[in-house]
């Protein structure tokens, strides 16, 4: 029986539910690497090169953890979503980097809508490699997509409800693989929740809506995920108290997106760049004072 390994980083945070629904429907067993811990991060740091961003280093750590625990590791290459919707180069290169660094079987598909390589074709290809019949694959794909669309709708609704909350509201902007990673953004989320902040997440909006809205900040944006992030800011800037932008060092798309957000925003804005510094003290100072300002505690 084949087991597919899914690294809990990068792509995982975009496709985790879709993949799991797809594999479960096909009765393919899969294993997901554990929540990032220091050991996994250290493994990644050890084998990566200094130019890589923290998130990619982390990804390699997860792959390293999985390498002898499964038959295949699932690594897509996501190149673009048509026209001007490019993804970050890490999403193109992860497959090649892993192939060069590790001696493992990789389960691989491309998403390149300019070349008509769709998610559907990708998942069909994977089903075939894992010896499933076309009829089964079709059914599983359909099921996974329906579930996924439901989830997007639901998450969007949750965000909309949160925007009506009476608590202090902060929009957390960032790539989901940074926001929700235990060693990258989780401490910040925990701190904010502990302080009774209503958190709205930039990745939980419907990208079809946010992508379009980003044109209000700039029409020349290149990266899809930057568009989604900035679009989320445009979407809710009149209903929130502040924006916190979390990015990992040295993320190239974010360096532009952060700067744009800072210049165009009229509400309080905090930019946090995470590298593998282990101390929370500096972060705490920034978060605490940011909350003080939002809550008006400075002025009492």
């Amino acid at each position: 029986m084949n087991t597919v390994g899914i690294p809990r980083s990068l792509f995982y945070y975009y496709y985790k539910d879709l993949w799991q629904d797809f594999f479960s429907a096909l009765k393919i067993s899969y294993i997901i690497s554990p929540i990032t811990n220091k050991e996994i991060m250290d493994r990644g740091l050890k084998m990566s090169n200094s130019e890589m961003c923290l998130s990619l280093k982390n990804y390699l750590g997860h792959v390293d953890y999985l390498k002898d625990k499964c038959n295949y590791i699932l690594i897509p290459r996501i190149s673009n979503f048509k026209n001007d919707n490019q993804t970050c180069t890490n999403f193109w290169a992860a497959y090649d980097i892993v192939k060069n660094l590790f001696d493992i079987n990789i389960l691989h598909y491309n998403i390149d809508l300019n070349q008509k390589q769709t998610l559907k074709k990708g998942l069909y290809k994977i089903g075939k490699i894992l010896n499933k019949k076309p009829r089964q694959i079709k059914k599983a794909y359909k099921y996974a997509i329906i579930q996924n669309n439901k989830r997007i709708k639901k998450n969007h609704q949750i965000n909309l409800n949160k925007l009506k909350s009476k608590k202090t509201k902060i929009l957390l902007v960032g790539h989901p693989y940074n926001l929700y990673d235990e060693l990258i953004g989780k401490d910040i989320i925990k701190y904010l929740i502990k302080n009774d902040i209503e958190l709205i997440y930039s990745d939980k909006f419907n990208p079809k809506i946010t992508n379009h809205l980003s044109k209000k900040i700039s029409k020349d944006l290149y990266f899809k995920y930057s568009k989604d992030n900035l679009g989320a800011i445009v979407y809710c800037q009149n209903q929130i108290n502040g924006v916190i932008f979390i990015s990992s060092f040295p993320c190239a798309p974010d360096s532009l997106a952060c700067e744009l957000a800072m210049r165009k925003l009229t509400i309080p804005y905090l930019n946090i760049v995470i590298d593998d510094n282990s101390s929370f003290t500096g972060l705490e100072t920034r978060l605490e004072s940011f909350l003080d300002m939002l809550g008006g505690k400075l002025n009492d």
Binding site: Y269, V273, L283, R286, S289, M293
Partner: peptide, 12 residues
Amino acid sequence: NGIITNYAMNTL
């Protein structure tokens, strides 16, 4: 008007 409207701090 005596109210903090914005602040920035160096990154790490």
